[in-house]
């Protein structure tokens, strides 16, 4: 593995650097979370909660219907808010949405827009830190899983992943979990491809449905 693991409190630079997941003390920079140190000196967390960011797309569900909108669970300590004007149809508790974060304030209150309703299917929960690997470079990983399983897949930056019941849902879910478990090891794409090929061949026509 090219990247080395850094721990909270470990020095990552002897100069002050304003980097994510770091803090500066006495003109030196230290890591705050368990992460991988990449070649360009940035930290990639290995675990941890989801940090809502503007323009992130998240998979979420309606947790409460309010007078003029909805409280939405986005896998964060506090619910996000979706105004009723943002969606054409009436939503009910438990409806699953793919939506964009349109605002985040300093106490992490989140507003959503551009919401799309996802019907049927299931939500898989993974560590939010592993989402970039599930998506892959230019959607390469998720595209490969989707093509091999015939499932429609929506990946939320928040660690919720929606997989349609059409297609081989179990293979898709197992593969996504495999990506999560091996995200920090090089050669991931080849292993996932081999896994999908092996299971696609083994799956009976009944299992495809």
């Amino acid at each position: 593995m090219a990247n080395s693991i850094v721990l909270p409190g470990q020095m990552v630079s002897d100069k002050p650097a304003r980097l994510p997941y770091c803090y500066v003390e006495n003109n030196k920079t230290y890591a705050t979370v368990l992460s991988l140190l990449s070649d360009d000196g940035r930290l990639v967390p290995l675990c941890g909660p989801y940090e809502p960011l503007l323009d992130d797309y998240v998979v979420s569900y309606v947790s409460e219907v309010r007078f003029s909108g909805y409280n939405i669970n986005i896998n964060c300590p506090a619910n996000a808010y979706l105004s009723g004007r943002e969606v054409a149809q009436k939503l009910t508790v438990g409806d699953v949405l793919y939506a964009r974060i349109s605002a985040v304030d300093e106490i992490k209150s989140v507003e959503l827009n551009d919401a799309r309703l996802l019907r049927g299917g299931t939500i898989i929960e993974i560590a939010a830190a592993k989402v970039p690997r599930v998506i892959g470079k230019k959607n390469s990983m998720i595209g490969m899983i989707s093509a091999a399983t015939g499932c429609e897949i929506y990946v939320g930056r928040n660690g919720f992943i929606w997989v349609s019941s059409k297609g081989n849902q179990k293979l898709a879910a197992d593969t996504i979990r495999m990506v999560e478990a091996q995200a920090h090891i090089t050669g991931l794409t080849d292993r996932i491809k081999a896994h999908l090929d092996a299971h696609k061949a083994a799956a009976s026509p009944a299992a495809q449905n």
Binding site: Y61, V62, S63, N73, V93, G94, V96, G120, G121, T122, I123, S165, Q169, K170, A173, N209
Partner: peptide, 24 residues
């Protein structure tokens, strides 16, 4: 509780196919 309802739906869909989510 809402998650439970979502899980219940997908559980019933899988069981209707005569399978369990973990393959047992």
């Amino acid at each position: 509780e809402i998650v439970n309802e979502l899980k219940k739906d997908s559980l019933k869909r899988i069981l209707a196919q005569g399978k369990r989510a973990d393959g047992r």
